[in-house]
Amino acid sequence: MESYEWMVVYTPQTGWIDGKGILVWIAEVTGGLGGGLYLVSLYFDSLWGMFLGWLIIISKCGFHFAHLGQPSKFWRLALNAKTSWLTRGFIFLTLFIVFGALQLAFTYWLPGTAAEITFKVLAGIMAFLVATYAGFVMNYVNGIPLWNSALLPLLFIVSGLLGGLAVIVAISLFGSGVDLMTSVGSLPLLLIINSLLIAIYLWSGTYMGPTGKRSVIELVKGRLSPVLWLGVTLCGIIFPLSICLYSYFIREASAPFVIMAVACVIVGIFSLNYCLLKGGLYSPLVPMS
């Protein structure tokens, strides 16, 4: 964008995707993935999955920390829980790390105790909030109509669960007590829900005024269309869906194919978040050229 076009035409947000903003993109993906993985691991009772989810969430904190202009003041992010979703997210992350660490310790050394169950519940709630809050952070920004949608938090949690399930499938390949066919069989359902949700989200975006519509056009047939169609749709949905359905119906999962499907799901989630962040447009400030 040329400087003379600033706020005269639709202006894309750049702070959270360009330059150092890439860290926010990675942090959003890791938040959904880590939270989703932890929740799915709780369901499948996979200690390795829980531990990996916990580690991914810690890495998310690192990406946020690296993005701050003044990292030494990171603790100040906790000071406005009344109105700021970033503060709430900071609190959810902190609590998840604490509860998650305690739960992992109890599960490893004292399994079956009341304390283990209590911390599983608490960490599970926090994992859900960690996977969801980025949707609320973006949804609160009414200057970017594409983001100002109630579907966004839902999209974040579903894509987080999808990513988590994909990682569990990969873990189950290495025999960690999770039934491979059960996890592979669950993946198509989440892939279909996720794709339906993306379609509804984009469709609803066209009703968010001319700026929202423009964002959707940019995604569907504009500069971001290769990412949406190749990254999100083909790589993130169609390809893994085909592999999972094939594996499920022949009742045999080939390791290379499953790993490829898992990798594609993760690429799809990265692409989806990229589209959401990059597709955010501001309305022109003055009458348009």
Partner: peptide, 29 residues
């Protein structure tokens, strides 16, 4: 002011919205 997690952005009584650079962590929200 509402989204600022650090309390660095505040509104004075006379309506001026200000940023306290000592409090801002640079999250860019």
């Amino acid at each position: 002011v509402k989204v600022c997690p650090c309390g660095a952005s505040t509104k004075r009584e006379d309506g001026i919205v200000k940023v306290d650079y000592e409090k801002c962590a640079g999250c860019q929200y």
